[in-house]
Amino acid sequence: MKSAFAESRPFLLLSLLFGISYYFACVLNNPELPEPLIVAWKGAGVGFLAIYALIRLHRLDGKIVGAIMALGAIGDMALEYDLILGAGAFMAGHLLAIIFYSRFRRHKLGFSQKLFAIILVPLSVLIAWALPFDRSEALGISVYCLSVAAMAAMAWTSRFSRYQVGAGAIMFLISDLLIFARMGPLETSIIPEMLIWPLYYFGQFMIATGIVATLRHEMAADSADPVQA
């Protein structure tokens, strides 16, 4: 177990290094670097989370979480060239995450938590639909928001930590709503520029590390159980 952690820790640290440095170097500043380098820098933060998940979870779940993170990294980079392609990669990741979370349902769910999850999806879609000034973009944005809001609701109601995986998914959703707000009422505001990347990246970081921590704990508990004939 210690060996696996030692092998995966550098990738977690690399994720933090690239994710945080991208914000200060490329979001808050305009570096004179080749565009492909900036795009690769952007994708590296979540890309290393994919490698981290694959190494820490030597089972199908690790491959699925790695694929979700990899699709996020592809979406990050593709958005710089083609909006539809980038959104498609993210939607594929959201749909895969929804299927994944459905396998880890929380057995007991409080009324307030269930109500929050139920309201979250239509409310998010309604907000997304109302945000863009160009009304021809409202339908496409709403369809995309449906996927990310459903992903967040499924994460919130899964048995993974709400304070880590659930909160991370909500942060991801808020970051996307801020992107849509930049197409509307916050078009000239500095708020989206300041908050979109931190909410998105640390949301992904919390999701990946929270899932891995929970499943590693369950694996350790299972291995400690006496073997029955």
Score class of each variant (00 low, 15 high):
Ala150Pro: 12
Ala152Glu: 05
Pro122Gln: 08
Phe100Ala: 00
Phe104Pro: 07
Ser142Gly: 02
Ala117Phe: 08
Ala167Pro: 15
Trp156Thr: 09
Asp82Gln: 09
Gly166Ala: 06
Leu85Lys: 09
Trp156Tyr: 08
Leu109His: 10
Ser142Thr: 00
Gln113Tyr: 13
Leu139Lys: 12
Ala167Gly: 15
Asp76Leu: 04
Leu85Ile: 10
Leu115Tyr: 07
Ala73Gly: 04
Pro122Glu: 10
Phe90Val: 00
Ile74Asn: 11
Ala97Pro: 09
Ala149His: 01
Val143Arg: 10
Ala97Thr: 05
Ala152Cys: 04
Gly110Asp: 05
Ala149Glu: 01
Trp156Gln: 07
Gly166Ser: 05
Pro132Met: 01
Asp76Lys: 06
Gln113Ser: 14
Ile141Met: 05
Gln113Lys: 14
Ile118Tyr: 08
Tyr144Pro: 03
Cys145Lys: 03
Ala117Val: 09
Gly86Tyr: 03
Ala138Tyr: 02
Ile118Leu: 06
Ala153Lys: 01
Ser102Cys: 15
Asp134Gln: 00
Arg135Lys: 08
Leu109Val: 06
Phe111Gly: 14
Arg159Ser: 07
Ile84Ser: 12
Leu123Asn: 07
Met91Gly: 11
Ala117Ile: 08
Leu126Tyr: 14
Asp134Ile: 00
Ala117Gln: 02
Leu146Ala: 09
Gln164Ala: 15
Gly75Phe: 06
Leu123Glu: 10
Ile84Pro: 09
Arg106Trp: 12
Ser112Thr: 13
Glu80Ile: 02
Ile119Arg: 14
Phe111Tyr: 15
Leu120Val: 10
Met91His: 10
Leu126Ser: 14
Ser102Asp: 15
Gly166Lys: 04
Ser158Lys: 09
Ile84Asn: 07
Asp76Asn: 01
Trp156Cys: 11
Gln113Val: 14
Asp134Phe: 00
Val125Glu: 10
Leu79Met: 01
Val165Glu: 09
His107Glu: 15
Ala169Gly: 10
Ala169Lys: 02
Ile118Arg: 10
Leu123His: 08
Ser147Pro: 06
Ala169His: 04
Phe116Glu: 09
Gly110His: 03
Val148Trp: 02
Ala87Val: 08
Tyr81Pro: 00
Gly168Phe: 12
Ala149Ser: 04
Ile141Val: 07
Phe104Gly: 13
Phe133Val: 03
Val165Trp: 12
Gly140Tyr: 05
Arg106Met: 13
Met154Lys: 11
Ala92Ile: 03
Phe133Gln: 09
Leu131Arg: 03
Ala138Met: 03
Ser124Leu: 11
His107Tyr: 15
Val165His: 12
Trp129Arg: 12
Ala138Thr: 07
Leu146Cys: 06
Tyr163Lys: 14
Ser124Arg: 06
Cys145Leu: 07
Met154Pro: 11
Tyr81Trp: 00
Ser161Arg: 12
Phe90His: 00
Ala138Asp: 06
Val121Asn: 04
Leu115Lys: 05
Met91Asp: 12
Leu95His: 05
Ala78Phe: 00
Leu85Val: 09
Tyr81Gly: 00
Met151Glu: 06
Arg135Gln: 04
